[in-house]
Design a protein around this nucleic acid. Sequence first.
DNA 1: CGAACGCTTCGGCGGCGGGCGAAGCATCTC
DNA 2: GAGATGCTTCGCCCGCCGCCGAAGCGTTCG
Lengths: 249, 249
Amino acid sequence: MSNPPCPAASANDIATIAALIGDPARTNILSALMGGQALTAGELSWHAGVGAPTTSGHLAKLSEAGLLVMERQGRHRYYRLASADIAHTMESLMALAATGPRRHRPPSPKDEALRTARTCYDHLAGRLGTALAGSLDARGHVIVGDGGALVTEAGRDFLAGLGAGLGAALADGNGDGAGGGRPLCRVCLDWSERRHHLAGRLGAALLTCSLERGWIARIPDSRAVTITDAGKQAFSTVFDITAEHLAPK
Amino acid sequence: MSNPPCPAASANDIATIAALIGDPARTNILSALMGGQALTAGELSWHAGVGAPTTSGHLAKLSEAGLLVMERQGRHRYYRLASADIAHTMESLMALAATGPRRHRPPSPKDEALRTARTCYDHLAGRLGTALAGSLDARGHVIVGDGGALVTEAGRDFLAGLGAGLGAALADGNGDGAGGGRPLCRVCLDWSERRHHLAGRLGAALLTCSLERGWIARIPDSRAVTITDAGKQAFSTVFDITAEHLAPK
DNA sequence: CGAACGCTTCGGCGGCGGGCGAAGCATCTC
DNA sequence: GAGATGCTTCGCCCGCCGCCGAAGCGTTCG
């Protein structure tokens, strides 16, 4: 009883990882990569807001800890998040930050764009993302429960009819993802809307599908996406999403 | 394009929170509080492994950031986690730490006790927690999907029959918890088993029910719990959990 | 082949922040 | 009221770590 309980192997590792995320420059790097795309060290240096040497050091640390993976291509080095778990943890932290004591929160236009529609690692978030989840839930295509979601038979048929990518994503059925394979459908707590949006293989497929069809378009150097006119039309007719969910503020 | 993208209000807050978690002493404090109980500053000082003055500073910072809440009682000051979200974030970080590059991992006896059965904030985790979730899922009482779970009609009846606390917990039905009320049933990724266990109001009710009936008992100064002989019997007959899930290693 | 570019390593600077001892407030006990 | 206990505040020290400029390696281009 006199010794500290567990100079726990794990406790220390938690602190190590949290400390890695806990630096502003590194947070900027990780946030930039939450779009799911791989970025070069130079681009990340710009996002981080610090010089190239400093960024290099940060990237080395993040990679060594297994949070990032690097791929060399020509004279560029591309970095991306090592797994969806990292993105999940970041979202979790964002949700915490959003609930904390309200600091001065001047809602910038950029902020508003992010709240309207953005990518969260490899799926959709923001008003669009949560509206999509709400629509599928209301129609009984997925059942959004507490912290999770299931795809129904009807939903399977409906989604498979939307596109090839979605059909393939649905192939393996609802698994709980414990077997190593990626879960079909998870939910993610949206830090701006404080509601759930869809993640997992289904969420990823919905994003790529929306991009391929030109319903949304990525905004350079940002996680925000714009909803095209075709997209407004499509989301309205296919998913019954009202216009107010598709426009800023 | 020349300015850093978002000296983002939120990005900085994320870093702030992560940095708070990212100190070993503070991680120990938060881990100790993940048992869901409130602890005094003195007890936390012992868990943290640093002196009283240092601990006091840490507690002040954590409280100001909204991660902890304090309650004075006589000459003691009790601290506890401010919300289940904090616990969720910590679990998320533990999962990341567990997946990282395998460092030396000498499995101590204490470690093994934690893996067998422990509390995770206010619900059960470890082999017992995941076995419980698996049992309820296999019987169709809850549907554990990807990252979430739903209570079925049959499950509602079965669980309500187990005890008053469970019946009350089930009263409000499956909500997605976005409305401010606490979700009925969430899942939590178990960092030791890499499978899901049940959280939310249902998870909390299962824990209190198990404690009240003497199926499990808290181990002082630890998140681990012991499974009593009565508990072994009960979990086996009521939930069909095999003996191997109830014993260390 | 030399120049330009992208990224990393090295060396040194500076500041933030965790740590403790001593002292200051509370609260409970005798 | 005096003393003990629990916790906080203050003042100080010291080490870690983020940051940059300069230099070093690898790749690409003219």
